[in-house]
Design a protein around this nucleic acid. Sequence first.
DNA 1: ACAATATATTAGTATATAATAATGTAATAA
DNA 2: TTATTACATTATTATATACTAATATATTGT
Lengths: 109, 109
Amino acid sequence: MKTSDLYTRQADLIKALAHPTRIRIVELLRRGERCVCEIYENLELEQSNVSQHLSLMKKQGILDWRKEGLRVMYRVKYPQVFAILDLAREMLRAEIHSTLGVLNEKTAE
Amino acid sequence: MKTSDLYTRQADLIKALAHPTRIRIVELLRRGERCVCEIYENLELEQSNVSQHLSLMKKQGILDWRKEGLRVMYRVKYPQVFAILDLAREMLRAEIHSTLGVLNEKTAE
DNA sequence: ACAATATATTAGTATATAATAATGTAATAA
DNA sequence: TTATTACATTATTATATACTAATATATTGT
């Protein structure tokens, strides 16, 4: 039996959020649960591609799903997921501002 | 010019934390700044390997550094980095508990 | 100027990830 | 029972990532 260590599990969980498409999916799900078709239509992606990304996140335990007739409805299981995306955005903004800051210094007075 | 879009930048930033070795490095830096040699000795990794991971995180803007003689001291630039690791650990614990929960139900009474 | 030390960079290779296309499966409708 | 719809899975291929080993660079001490 090969139980991956905690750092690896933690990394895999974070990795589940480390893709632009998966971030877009999660942001869509922030507004509530959605079926697969809504997701790929909304984001203009291939059904298969979306399905694979969903299954990856499901595997990492951050998504829940339920069948509703033909549809499969997905939702984000932990609010921490949104919190992580928000924190990343904060840092991104800070980074962008600090590089812009350098530009401003150069063009100032 | 190929300016990567915001979701890609956000994903790259998160990806910088999505590796067991980089998580271990950041956890070490949680206790304060460290030189490269302290890091690779402490974590029993190759200097070159650590250097590459550091440079990746530096590139994503989450690490700061300063030269001190021969040494280069690294530190984490944003507390958000630690917050993200903490949130991921929370979810990991919840996941582990919920799977253990299933086991308990099976062995109960 | 030369040696030693700390770190960075590069090249090479193995492995992982992602996208597309094709096929499979399960639920409902006719 | 057959067709249709929604989704999942698999195979293939391209690209990205990570590790090791080797080499380069920069700083300090002699």
